[in-house]
Simulated scan of single mutants.
Amino acid sequence: MRARITPLGTLLALLAGLLTALVTTTPAQAAPLFKAPYPCGQKWTYGHHSAEVRQALDFIRADGGTTAGTPVLASASGTAYRYSQPSGAGNYIVVDHGSGWKTYYFHLNAYSVANGAWVAQGQQIGTTGSTGNSSGAHIHYEQLYNGVGQPIVINGASLAPYPGSYGSKYLTSDNGCSGGGGGKYWVDTFANATGYAQANTNDAQGVLNAGTNYVYCKVWGQEVRDASGNFNHWWLRTDLDTVYAGKNGNGAYVSAYYLSRWGNDEARDNNGATIPSC
């Protein structure tokens, strides 16, 4: 009995089907735990419009701060590459996170890292701007896997479905909240302290209750002084216990004047360690 010979075209079709099955069933490499591309405690609104490439989102500040000039942070660690496209993306950075994952940051006013530099999650890579084809300062942000745009996921949660304009959805960042100092620093405060959006008394966000609290880091700002002559210029970034309506209690600033154990212009934790700068 003669063996039956399968036509060459049929064999090729079977092989093509097998290859397709292998490709479509190969799981994607797990994405990094991406965080928002702007500093800890800041609240931004985001939107997507039809002219956007891939599945990008545009972010602008919604917490009373100025969008232009705000630091742009790496949403995960990786290698940063600098590019410029004056007619489109403007000054932009691509961070290669490995395993096929990359993030894009368009329209930067300035770069903050060298081309090819390794960057940590939360490290500043540029400042927000409006370079290239842009009508106003914002962060154009993308997440790509093997060159294909993906729905934006922050802290493991998808931001899809995207709004078509700003003002309906918001995201508060926890990127860089450790302040580069290795985590939280525990301090005692002697009275309830008002927390502000920045290191000044212009925009109250809520209240930090008296007692033992954690802080992330410190910045130099407006002097707080009482009638007895006690004062402090340091402000401590922390999360508030009570948040005023419409305000943001994460990453607010409380004057180090309220520290129980230390004197003028000191900012130390309960063990006496100097709280690091933000």
Rank of each mutant, 00 (worst) to 15 (best):
K43E: 05
T79E: 12
Q124E: 13
G65C: 04
G129T: 06
Y214M: 04
V113P: 11
T10S: 08
S173M: 00
Y46E: 02
Y81W: 15
S134N: 11
R82E: 12
S158E: 03
T10L: 08
T66Q: 14
G229I: 08
Y83R: 11
H233F: 13
N271C: 04
A157D: 01
I139M: 06
A3L: 15
Q42G: 12
L208A: 15
P161W: 01
V113G: 09
Y253S: 09
N175I: 03
Y258M: 05
S260H: 04
N192C: 05
A3T: 14
A21T: 14
W44M: 05
G64Q: 03
T70L: 14
G156V: 03
H107A: 04
T67D: 01
R237K: 10
S178A: 13
K169R: 04
Y38T: 02
D203P: 10
V23L: 14
A30H: 00
W262N: 08
T127C: 10
K247D: 08
G182I: 05
W234D: 11
S158M: 05
G47R: 01
Y38H: 05
L236A: 10
Y105D: 08
N200A: 09
L240K: 02
G47N: 00
N250W: 05
A137L: 08
Y166D: 06
G195I: 00
A245E: 00
H48G: 02
G176Y: 03
Q55R: 14
A273Y: 00
H138F: 06
G90K: 02
T238D: 10
R4P: 01
P276W: 10
A114Q: 11
A117P: 01
S50A: 15
G116T: 09
N146C: 11
I154C: 04
Q42L: 11
A28L: 10
Y257T: 14
S277T: 00
T201W: 04
T172P: 03
K247A: 12
R225N: 11
C217W: 04
K247Q: 15
F231K: 13
A36L: 08
H97W: 04
Y105V: 08
Y196H: 11
A273N: 09
G246C: 00
N213E: 12
G272H: 09
W220H: 10
N271P: 01
D63R: 00
S134H: 06
L15F: 12
S255L: 14
I125W: 14
Y216A: 07
L8W: 12
Y244F: 14
S255Y: 13
I154L: 12
T194L: 15
S130Y: 05
K247I: 02
A273Q: 07
Y170Q: 00
T25Y: 12
A51Q: 07
S87R: 02
V219W: 08
W44F: 08
G229T: 10
W186A: 12
R225V: 10
T194C: 07
L240Q: 03
G206Y: 02
N271L: 12
Q55L: 13
P151Q: 10
P276K: 14
V94G: 11
A68L: 12
W44K: 01
Q143M: 09
K218P: 01
G176N: 03
T70D: 10
A62Y: 07
